[in-house]
């Protein structure tokens, strides 16, 4: 990362790809991140790019280390087998500023960073999500996300469903203040992103939408979210789902 005084004045944003067994799919993800970085303008922001390899297979590692060599990514290897824990570590290791997470097989729309950073810069308590999740591969559905300030938003919905996933952009302090909870598949608790959304709302943070932005999300047969849904797992308990905290 640059340390010149001129560049230090630019807002800092750490772009974090979390990968495990994406293999060659990781390549397109890296390309989309680079396109996004270019569109946002390195002259406007100082970006630090990291790939976290959690129990990654060799194919995935090869792609990641090639990206280190060619595009200046940092690589960190972990052995959690838990996305939440990886994100927690990544947040704790990131420098001050914003953090944007990207799954190792997903694609950002080119305007994502630019628009999300513009939104997040308005308020340090904002957690920014794309306007659309556009699925491809095993699904072709489109999910239109809801801004917390929208009339369609209700805390009550979070009792039964999730508005947003973990692929957001927010200030590092939010991630360190509210870390992701651990998965406990044996007991039947997962959906750490849903839980994190509830907890952050409880803490007073606000989930916002960056208009016109898209996350293209690859749906694979062995997707962890799909697997969690099939296993009848639940989100961990959180005060937000209690009737005491209802809208």
């Amino acid at each position: 990362m640059s340390t010149t005084s001129k560049k230090a004045a630019r807002p800092l944003c750490t772009l974090i790809i979390t990968a495990h067994k994406e293999g060659l799919l990781l390549g397109a993800t890296i390309k989309s991140l680079l396109a996004c970085e270019k569109f946002a303008g390195p002259e406007n922001y100082s970006f630090h790019k990291v790939i976290y390899l959690d129990n990654a297979d060799q194919e995935t590692k090869d792609i990641a280390y090639n990206a280190e060599k060619c595009f200046g990514f940092s690589i960190v290897e972990t052995e959690y087998a838990d996305q939440g824990k990886v994100r927690n570590q990544a947040a704790s290791e990131a420098q001050d500023g914003f953090i944007a997470f990207l799954d190792g097989d997903d694609i950002w729309s080119e305007n994502w960073l630019s628009k999300a950073l513009a939104t997040a810069s308005q308020n340090k308590n904002y957690i920014v999500h794309p306007e659309f999740n556009w699925f491809f591969g095993g699904s072709n559905n489109i999910l239109h996300k809801i801004d917390q300030d929208s009339q369609l938003f209700s805390k009550n919905f979070l009792r039964t469903g999730n508005y947003w996933d973990a692929l957001c952009l927010a200030h590092r302090d939010i991630f360190t203040h509210v870390p992701y909870s651990a998965r406990d598949i044996a007991t039947g608790f997962a959906f750490e992103d849903w839980h994190w959304n509830c907890e952050t709302i409880q803490m007073g943070y606000k989930h916002k939408i960056a208009e016109d932005t898209i996350h293209f999300k690859r749906r694979r047969a062995n997707s962890q979210t799909i697997a969690a849904s099939k296993r009848k797992v639940l989100m961990r308990d959180t005060n937000l789902i209690h009737f005491d905290n209802a809208d």
Binding site: A28, K31, S32, A35, I107, W134, F136, G137, N140, N141, I142, L143, H144, K145, I146, L152, F153, S154, F157, G161, N162, Y163, F216, R218
Partner: peptide, 18 residues
């Protein structure tokens, strides 16, 4: 970047949580 995006739009649903 990823030609498989929007490759097959048959049976698509649009969701709005809530």
């Amino acid at each position: 970047i990823e030609p498989r995006i929007d490759f097959d739009t048959r049976g698509r649903s649009i969701f709005i949580p809530g």
